[in-house]
Amino acid sequence: MDWTEILRFSRGPLLHVAMMIFIVGMSYRLVKVILLGWERDRAANKGSKLWGVILNYLKGLLVLPFIPWVRRTFRNNALTFIAGGLFHLSLFVVLAFGTAHILVWKSLFGISWKSLPTPVVAFFSAAGIISLIVLLINRLTHPVLKLLTKLPIWINWVMVFLPMITGFIMARHLWFRYEVIFSLHLISVSLLLIWIPLGRISHFLFYFFSKTIHGAQAGKRAIMP
């Protein structure tokens, strides 16, 4: 099999089409959610919406994840919380500070920044993969989760796991020829991009949307979000 040709295809047309589907799909999903309808908010404006939004993000992203024991979610299910948190943190570190990914953002948005040292990114990459495996085992063994998990969730897991594992193998130069694993990584990323608007992974965008709305609502009422 000519992997140089496959790489050319996956770096070019395949990724291009996947990105197009991703953009159309996510715009569609977002608009559909926004236009579901809004309840009229009759509360008087007692505080600042902006401040509410800022507080909500600070609390949700910077404070609570690092003092998890104050939350009931953590006390009831520490494993999901830690593995899930580590997975999301790792994903962020690898995508935002991995050298190869920075080059992707640079080509797409024209901006670039310093990458983290490779061993640090490799550590987070491994941590993310291990967390994902732990979460899978948990899902396979937990009696309630097993009942709740349907086919789309298993597909979600595979779709996220494949780019991560192929990316790790590629970055560490393990086992495969570079063009082979590079192609596999790009193919899995393309599949993920196509899958995201169809499934629950779209929460990566909706999370920020709902976090903003909740923050604004709480800010308006001058209460802690």
Binding site: R8, R11, G12, P13, L15, H16, M19, M20, I23, V24, G25, M26, S27, Y28, R29, L30, V31, K32, L35, A100, H101, L103, V104, K106, S107, L108
Partner: peptide
């Protein structure tokens, strides 16, 4: 001088806007 990991076909602003427009139109 493009990074090797960068996609070889880049979506320009007009195409991106068109795609977003298409998504928004269908959603709306």
């Amino acid at each position: 001088y493009e990074g090797q990991s960068a996609p070889t076909i880049i979506l320009d602003k007009v195409s991106t806007a068109t795609l977003v427009g298409a998504g928004v139109a269908v959603g709306a």
